[in-house]
Write a protein that binds this DNA or RNA. Structure first.
Length: 287
DNA sequence: AAGAGGCCCTGATAGC
DNA sequence: TGCTATCAGGGCCTCT
């Protein structure tokens, strides 16, 4: 489900709500996520105080005061909900949750704080939790990741160096977290549209100018998506159950057979599978 | 080493 | 109504 912008939205609201709070109780309904949750996970994070909530790429990080941390990956369908114990009626008009506070078969992890609880819900169970004893372990986890688009390390020189000999198509590289971190299937298509680059183009054929456009539009598209509260295709909502609106700003994603929105372009948006992921692009202006 | 493809899992939707 | 097939925002693993 969530790409960098969606995880950033969750991170921001989560940080406001649980920063400084102490975990009172952890209950796990289903340990069988993508990777099984450690049998002593509850003990490991119980009583810890949340120093802040962080994010790297598509990963959420609960940073605790004692230098340990808990990483949460949301996979395709993971969502995080906050439910206030003494204000449960505030949630009665939210649709993300059939009946707030009541059991849901996909609520796998519940982390209780004093006056609220954090609920991890994930129908497909592609997400997972991972505990780190200290910051060094956490840093090591991300050591093989490519930079985020916002990072100064993501430079034209870096892009050129990485792609210059690659025969694979450019779409696959935007999804490759070793190249650049945080871009997923929606934003890969959107970014390539603004760059006017065809997703099937072999990476090594990209020009100096293409690299500059990738650099620029990856930042622009993700920044705009964050401003709009992320994209809600199926089930993305922030921790309060509120949907994002960036899906209204899609130029190509899920617009197959519709006309290109670029002024004066007479092209039609096509949908083609690339490595089993659907890719959307204009058949005229993306070369 | 790089690239292609399978697979983990549930649910929504379309077509018959 | 109910079956089957296909497709979803991710990413790991294996094989060539």
């Amino acid at each position: 489900m969530p790409e960098l912008p969606e995880v950033e939205i969750i991170k921001q609201s989560l940080d406001k709500k649980i920063k400084g709070k102490r975990i009172k109780k952890v209950s796990i309904k289903n340990r069988n996520l993508r990777f099984p949750i450690l049998s002593n996970f509850e003990k490991l994070i119980n009583k810890k105080i949340v120093k802040k909530v962080d994010r790297f790429s598509k990963y959420l990080i609960l940073q605790f005061k004692d230098d340990s941390s808990c990483m949460i990956h949301l996979g395709m369908t993971g969502t995080i909900h906050l439910v206030y114990k003494n204000k449960i009626s505030n949630f009665s008009n939210t649709s993300f949750y059939n009946s707030p506070g009541l059991p849901n078969k996909h609520n796998h992890v519940i982390i209780n704080f004093n006056n609220l609880k954090l609920i991890y819900n994930d129908p497909r169970r592609f997400g997972y939790f991972k505990f780190f004893n200290n910051n060094n372990e956490l840093i090591k986890q991300f050591s093989h990741f490519g930079p985020e688009p916002f990072s100064s390390l993501f430079s034209r020189k870096y892009i050129h160096g990485f792609l210059k000999n690659k025969k694979k198509n450019i779409k696959n590289f935007l999804l490759d977290q070793n190249f650049v971190s945080g871009i997923g299937n929606i934003y890969a298509s959107e970014i390539l549209f603004f760059c006017k680059i065809n997703p099937f183009r072999k990476a090594k054929t990209l020009t100096f100018n293409d690299h500059k456009k990738l650099l620029y539009y990856s930042k622009v598209v993700l920044t705009e998506a964050i401003k709009k509260g992320g994209s809600s295709i199926r089930d993305f909502k922030d921790t309060q159950g509120k949907k994002g609106s960036f899906q209204k700003n899609f130029f190509v994603y899920q617009r197959q057979n519709l006309s290109c929105l670029k002024p004066k372009c007479l092209g039609i948006i096509k949908k083609k599978m690339i490595s089993n992921r659907s890719s959307y692009f204009c058949n005229m202006c993306q070369k």
